[in-house]
Design a protein around this nucleic acid. Structure first.
Length: 415
DNA sequence: TCGGCTTACACGTTTGAAACGA
DNA sequence: ATCGTTTCAAACGTGTAAGCCG
């Protein structure tokens, strides 16, 4: 395999690896966790990202303003930055196929990663509520390491077997319907079944790059912004669902996972016996949800037409101030920092196992404030000249991927 | 020798264009 | 001429198994 330090020599040894999350995995040995900390990296390396921080909005050609990060990993998160951003109060997300995820999670979810890219199954399919029907939002998905361990299948279960590989450049999958109005996103479930995972660090397609035999956690981000390249936004919210944690593999290790995949994935029907070998598993067919398949790939090359086709008249850009959506697209991790920033359950939605509906998560983990001005920022430039799929991180100005594409958010993870 | 990765393969699903009829 | 339905082939997504590699 390629070694990231050889592929990205400019990074040196500066890959910041996330520490084990408190309570995230009790099987992770504290010894490994301690050894996982880079002595020279006890404080986040922010200079490369935050050198250009300003309170006011910036143009596309300038470094985006970013909020402050927690001072030290593994400690209590810092209170929300005073110069912070909008939040998305009242917005909640629920995992539509939570039962399927739980079936896999109970066994120990594994996701195949290949050089060419492999889809996730189950896919993340969520319902969102609480959005402004008129405002426009971006839906993003990324995958972050859960801990600092490499895992090995020991015949009956997964066990840590050493330190993790250095973390690879973050990439973000942009839902192909982005940007679309709140009404569009709330109309039907939002599916990320087109996300592909790869183990190729030289992947040219922009798929999400993972190490094999590592544990990962998908995250879904909502950004209120009129356009992908909007230089201002109205807030951000991120969500993760514990049951979606998985271990990346190049070949299934646990035969029970193989059985579950075959039983639940329609593409694997050919491996079922008598056409059905596990009726207990609810299929996770991609049809129906709000999804790129509704508009086809043709829209990937034309971001102007990428907005929800159902919207006859695109909603006007909401008046919003503060940091840019662009900044979030570039450095989503920077807006969340430590795992403690991830959402907590909304107390107004107590778990109701008998309801059959997944319990929503609150978006209130980011308590942000409106930026100065609130509106009146210059209109964002037209979203022309989009790269069809992904791009490498680099100095501004940057091209932007089209909807359904991926964004390489830089080579230096924030945590 | 062994664990992990790549590749070719067969099978099924998805997708979109073409054909057809009302 | 338009619209809706059906058909069909190509593209795509699966897991498997064999072989390769370090």
């Amino acid at each position: 395999m390629y070694h990231p330090r050889e592929l990205y020599p400019s990074l040196g040894t500066g890959y910041r690896l996330g520490p084990p999350q408190p309570g995230g995995d009790s099987s992770f040995p504290p010894v490994l966790a301690e050894g996982y900390r880079y002595p020279d990296l006890d404080t986040p390396k922010l200079d490369c990202f935050l050198s250009g921080i300003e309170a006011g909005p910036r143009t596309l050609a300038a470094a985006p303003p970013l909020p402050l990060l927690p001072p030290t990993l593994g400690t209590e998160p810092a209170p929300p930055a005073a110069e912070a951003l909008h939040s998305l109060p009242g917005v909640s997300l629920s995992l539509e196929n939570q039962e399927l995820w739980k079936e896999f999670s109970a066994v120990g979810t594994e996701m195949i990663i290949t050089k060419a890219g492999r889809r996730m199954f189950p896919a993340c399919r969520v319902s969102v509520t609480g959005l402004d029907p008129e405002a426009r939002y971006l839906f993003l998905l990324d995958v972050v390491p859960v801990d600092g361990a490499r895992y090995r299948w020991q015949g009956r279960r997964w066990e840590p077997s050493g330190k993790a590989e250095p973390r690879l450049p973050d990439r973000v999958y942009i839902h192909p319907d982005s940007p679309a109005t709140g009404a569009h996103w709330m109309r039907q479930p939002v599916s990320f079944h087109r996300v592909k995972l790869t183990n190729s660090t030289l992947d040219p397609h922009g798929h999400l790059i993972l190490h094999s035999m590592h544990k990962y956690q998908p995250r879904i981000h909502l950004v209120r912004a009129a356009q992908l390249c909007s230089q201002h936004w109205g807030g951000v919210a991120s969500f993760r669902f514990p049951e979606t944690t998985f271990i990346s593999v190049t070949a299934y290790q646990n035969p029970r996972i193989t059985q579950l995949k075959i039983a639940a994935n329609p593409f694997a029907k050919g491996f079922r016996e008598n056409g059905r070998n596990s009726p207990s598993v609810s299929p996770d067919t991609p049809g129906g949800p709000c999804d790129s398949t509704l508009g086809g790939d043709m829209r990937e090359s034309d971001p102007e037409q990428a907005s929800a086709p159902q919207e006859a008249v695109p909603a006007p850009a909401p008046p919003c101030g503060g940091p840019s959506a662009e900044a979030y697209l570039l450095h989503p991790a920077a807006f969340h920092g430590a795992p403690n920033h991830l959402p907590t359950r909304n107390p107004t939605f107590p778990e109701a196992p008998d309801s059959g509906r997944p319990a929503p998560y609150s978006a209130a983990f980011l308590e942000l404030q409106p930026g100065p001005g609130g509106s009146g920022y210059p209109a964002a430039p037209p979203g022309a000249s989009f790269a069809p799929h992904f791009l490498q991180g680099g100095p501004f100005p940057l091209p932007y991927p089209g909807p359904g594409g991926y964004l390489d958010v830089g080579s230096k993870p924030m945590y």
